[in-house]
Design a binder for these strands. Sequence first.
DNA 1: AACGGCGTCAACCGCGGAAGG
DNA 2: CCCTTCCGCGGTTGACGCCGT
Length: 327
Amino acid sequence: MGRIPCCEKDNVKRGQWTPEEDNKLSSYIAQHGTRNWRLIPKNAGLQRCGKSCRLRWTNYLRPDLKHGQFSDAEEQTIVKLHSVVGNRWSLIAAQLTGRTDNDVKNHWNTKLKKKLSGMGIDPVTHKPFSHLMAEIATTLATPQVTHLAEAALGCFEDEMLHLLTKKRIDFQLQHCNTNVAQGNTSSPCISTKHDENDDTIEKIKLGLSRAMQEPGMLPPNKIWASTGVTSPNFAGTCNDFPSSVNAFLCCPSSFSNEGALSPWNHSMCTGSTCTTGDQQGRLHEMLGNENGEEFEGGKEIRKVSSIFNTDCVLWDMPSDDLMNPII
DNA sequence: AACGGCGTCAACCGCGGAAGG
DNA sequence: CCCTTCCGCGGTTGACGCCGT
């Protein structure tokens, strides 16, 4: 049972490659090319698995590879493409000159995921955490919503509190410091802040509960169903949420019904502005024809042109209010 | 100086699909 | 068609270096 191993594990070296091994592999490939990886280590005089040789070549030795830091533009491209194609690293890497899928994957896992999370965006769905919470709420009956709100707040409390109370807390701290500086130590700074936070939670819960009771709450996730695309990364549009939820969830007017064709508007608009022209061109090139109707060789078809909306902001707050406004 | 925690990145593993007999 | 082999992909692991205590 089981799969035949790609090589005899007893006879192959594993772990880090030495410069000598790199030289052997590089010079062999320079002479003979990369046909038949299984034979390459034997012919090149390497005690390595063919698979290991391929990996070493494609991820490190290839002369067209770019080593070093990812630029801002590259990061933006990764985030945008990831929001469209998910963890298809080879596809994403193909859009970045000199980067491998391993590079992109590592960079995503070590840097970009954290950056997005720090901004209050779920790196899996590319939606604000709070948006997800409201989305879950729409699937529940009204009596359950209060419980949901409580449970969800346990998950997203930090982000929501940050967004909703940052200005107020900043003001309180300033106010408190001023009092201390003036010798007025009777001001209950800490307890006031705590009470305000509790108050904010109650307001959020109340708002969410009300939101769930408004008509027309269910977001139109027919976009994906109608095109046959099976994506767990559904996102509704801003306009489909009631104002009480929209207040801290959505982009403004640019999310028209046309914009709703792309569920990824939020991630496309990370930060205060959206994709630049030439980036859009490359993405269009990758995603399909000028009409944006083709996707990856026709395997998956849907409209993509609306991904590249401009002038939108992630929140209805200035970007410097985000936890970590890096993009 | 020693240690532990953490982040980064190269490398490995196993699976699925393509190609060829 | 079926089977085998090979390749590519994405997830995971482990080594290593840095940093704080």
